[in-house]
Simulated assay, not measured.
Amino acid sequence: MWLDEANKTPEFEPVGTHPGYRRPGLGRAMLLHGTHPARAAGATCMTVACLGAPGHPEARGLYRSVGFRKSCSFIRS
């Protein structure tokens, strides 16, 4: 996770767990743990990079389980 200081939005890079260690809640715990310093820094919105999500429903499920929702933003010039 890294914090964009300009807009106070942290970004979680793709988060994953080795297949042999999935399902006991390690990825969820890591994501939830990362939200605490982000909120302390003033973040009200967080971003997770979920590239290739249609091919990885487990990843979508993990991100949604901690409160992330699908959102797309476009900058218009």
Rank of each mutant, 00 (worst) to 15 (best):
R28Y: 09
T9E: 11
V66L: 07
N7E: 02
G25P: 09
V48A: 14
P14R: 10
Y21F: 11
R23N: 14
H18L: 10
P19N: 00
P24M: 02
G67Q: 12
R64I: 06
G67R: 14
L51N: 12
C72F: 15
A53W: 14
G25I: 01
G27S: 03
G55S: 11
T44Q: 14
L62V: 02
K8L: 13
Y63E: 02
C45H: 14
P14D: 10
T17R: 07
A49D: 15
G20I: 01
M30A: 15
G42K: 05
A38Y: 09
P37M: 01
T9M: 09
R39L: 11
L31G: 08
P19W: 00
M30Y: 13
G67P: 11
D4I: 06
G20Y: 04
F12E: 06
F68H: 03
L51V: 04
C50E: 08
R64Q: 13
S65K: 00
V66F: 12
R64W: 00
P10V: 02
M30E: 11
F74M: 06
A43D: 08
R22G: 01
L26Q: 09
A53C: 11
E58A: 03
L32D: 05
A29I: 08
C45I: 11
R23F: 08
L3F: 09
L26W: 03
P54E: 12
I75F: 14
T9N: 11
T47V: 14
W2R: 09
F12V: 13
P14Q: 08
A29R: 15
V66N: 07
P24S: 05
H18I: 02
S73N: 07
R69S: 13
R60Q: 06
M30C: 13
G27F: 05
N7F: 04
G27K: 03
R60W: 05
M30R: 11
E13C: 05
A6V: 03
A49H: 14
Y21M: 05
A41H: 07
P24L: 08
T44Y: 11
G27I: 03
M1I: 06
S73M: 08
R60Y: 04
F68N: 02
N7V: 01
A49V: 15
R76W: 07
S71N: 14
G20M: 03
G25F: 04
G34T: 05
G67M: 11
R23D: 06
H33C: 02
T44I: 04
F12Y: 13
D4V: 03
D4F: 06
W2I: 08
T35M: 15
R76F: 13
P19S: 00
G27Q: 01
L51Q: 07
H18T: 03
R23V: 06
L62Y: 00
S77C: 09
F74P: 00
H33V: 01
H18Q: 05
R23M: 02
P37A: 01
M46R: 10
G52D: 13
R76G: 06
A43P: 09
L3K: 08
A38Q: 02
R39H: 12
V48I: 15
S71E: 15
M30S: 12
A38F: 09
A38W: 04
P19L: 01
C45N: 07
R60S: 10
P54H: 12
G27A: 14
T9A: 05
A53V: 08
G16Q: 04
